[in-house]
Design a protein around this nucleic acid. Structure first.
Lengths: 198, 198
DNA sequence: TCAGACATGTAACAGGTTACATGATTGA
DNA sequence: TCAATCATGTAACCTGTTACATGTCTGA
């Protein structure tokens, strides 16, 4: 149940509506957590019942009414308690890796398409994360930023996101190289590949 | 429902019992998928019903009987069909990143402990993955291996696993540096930190 | 005029986790 | 003798996903 904790730390950026939170989540937390908005609204209701957040309804005339959610002292306390427990290892699920494992029995073309799609997504994410870093720095260099900012947490996760996506790009390039080389070979000389003991 | 596909490609390494599969999964698939064994046995039963795998019961006297599971033609076909569909973006969930985001209100010591635990795990995984690569290569260099091996898929995912864990180590080191620097600062000079506009 | 942003929720279903049940064999 | 390995499964519970419901405002 760490969706709850993910929401709590996201609320450190200030109060928000469920709708805003789901966007903030997409931008700020996208490199380490994900959630559907249906799940998010449900969890917010439970968090309110447990006293971790407070909600005030803002009546709007031109829009549906909204519920502004903010952290309570108990919510901040819950973040501190969570920090005391050791974290399990990252669990990741990447369908592209399943396909990579099965490449030797599958169609290489479709896999290469998937690879280049993934590469583009990663490039776009790097750009987004780097823009976030620049706006956090506000002209300061890294050292000054780290010494003077009130919140360094979001910067740490952005660093991880950037290196993760750069690595993704590098892997896509390397994999494309290997898969294309084998494709080219297959056409050229199938006689070399008979009776291998591999 | 890609646990199914993850199991299918894992079975490309040859037939196995559910028990063996769960271990193989831990070793070979741990850098891109995870599953509980309860889930795995249940899925294998469904896969058998769908004709993707065949199971034969091996009677044992000194051990409980076991069911050897292997891929059918339909199973291999299912891998091919899966490869045709585009993959969604990776979904990752990393509690350590939640803690990093909340570091500014939490206890830094506990976080640093978690960091060094994570670092150790990553170091151990790199070692394990590199051993796997060496045993795959069987003395060949990368280029020769790629040109002559029957299955390059597992190598591709190992490459991703190695770079992922190296990156993890680098992030842990960088993060430790930043967090310790801020810790040291806090004690030294709180007057510098009053009335910042940040 | 039409898509997309704003805004909150419910219901049904699918997927994943934890605990339990059973019990012999093997190596430290 | 004690923990780990081999070996398969069920049941209860928790989490996560998809589809649906509703309706206005704003900008292209």
């Amino acid at each position: 149940m760490s969706l709850r904790q993910a929401l709590l730390v996201t609320l450190l950026d200030g109060e928000a509506t469920g709708y805003e939170l789901s966007k903030r989540f997409d931008i700020a937390a996208s490199n380490f957590w994900n959630a559907q908005q249906a799940q998010l609204y449900a969890e917010l209701i439970r968090m309110e019942a447990d006293g971790l957040v407070e909600a005030t309804t803002v009546v709007q005339t031109k829009r549906p009414n909204k519920r502004l959610v903010k952290l309570t002292e108990a919510g901040i306390q819950a973040i501190r308690e969570f920090a005391q427990e050791p974290s399990p290892r990252t669990s990741l699920k990447d369908e592209l890796m399943i396909k990579a494992t099965g490449i030797d029995v599958s169609d290489a073309e479709a896999f290469l398409d998937d690879l280049s799609r993934r590469r583009e997504i990663s490039i776009a994410l790097i750009d987004r994360y780097e823009t976030s870093v620049r706006s956090m720095f506000r002209g300061r260099d890294e050292d000054t930023f780290v010494r003077t900012t009130r919140r360094v947490g979001p910067y740490l996760t952005l660093l991880r996101g950037i290196s993760l996506e750069r690595d993704n790009v590098a892997w896509c390039d390397e994999t494309k190289r290997i898969v294309t080389a084998r494709l080219a070979m297959r056409g050229a000389s199938s006689e070399h590949r008979v009776n291998r003991t591999d």
